[in-house]
């Protein structure tokens, strides 16, 4: 029951770290949505560019997070941000881009051609089709992309503690370096619960944006 004692005694710290964690992930994934969705829409215009962009994204996502942090340190050192939350946010942003761009692209290209034709037939302009037909229909799939981006990056942000970004990872990292199972468990359990709850909440949101009668992906 050391664990409960730890939580009781360090409420403020755990809450602060959790808040930090959420804020950093939200900030990075928010940026990724702002960039990724328009990119996903834009690349539907050209198959070759789309393939190129998606392949680039898939390479970025295979680079282990700690290696990505490492590669960014000397580059960001030039502007004095080698370690801290800047490389963490950039890495999370990069990792979040692929799922969001890919899902937006797939969802829009998968819109039933008959619906697109019907929208053309009733006299919608290209932009109206996008806002009134294609994006609403794609929303559940885009949301699925956001959800997987968020879940992956809650994990990435935990590792970012090692480059001084803060977050729940710093509780785990201190626990490991002090060989203190209580801190390890406190950090690991909090970050796991955060990931599981976020995943569930985004799943509910995903279901909510799915119009009744349309299958959820």
């Amino acid at each position: 029951m050391n664990l409960i004692d730890y939580f009781l005694q360090n409420q403020d710290l755990v809450l602060m770290r959790t808040f930090e964690h959420i804020a950093l992930v939200a900030c990075a994934v928010g940026l990724a949505i702002l960039v990724g969705v328009p990119t996903g829409v834009a690349i539907t215009q050209n198959k070759l560019i789309a393939d190129m962009v998606l392949y680039l994204g898939s390479v970025v996502i295979t680079i282990p997070s700690i290696a990505l942090f490492g590669l960014m340190i000397p580059i960001l050192s030039q502007i004095g941000q080698g370690i801290g939350y800047v490389p963490a946010v950039i890495a999370v942003f990069l990792y979040a881009l692929l799922p969001i761009v890919r899902n937006t692209y797939t969802a829009i290209t998968d819109v039933d051609p008959a619906l697109r034709e019907a929208a053309r037939g009733v006299g919608m302009s290209a932009l109206q089709r996008l806002y009134k037909v294609e994006i609403p229909l794609s929303l559940p799939v885009i949301m699925a992309g956001v959800r997987s981006a968020v879940v992956i990056n809650i994990g990435v942000m935990a590792i970012a503690a090692y480059i001084g970004a803060g977050g729940l990872g710093s509780i785990i990292s201190r626990g490991i370096s002090q060989s203190d199972p209580v801190q390890i468990f406190a950090g690991a359990i909090t970050v796991s619960v955060l990931a599981i709850i976020t995943d569930g909440a985004l799943f509910l949101l995903q279901k909510k944006v799915t119009p009744p009668g349309q299958a959820s992906h």
Partner: peptide, 9 residues
């Protein structure tokens, strides 16, 4: 969904 660092820890 459990973060890898948490699992390893």
């Amino acid at each position: 969904t459990i973060p890898t660092l948490a699992l390893l820890a």
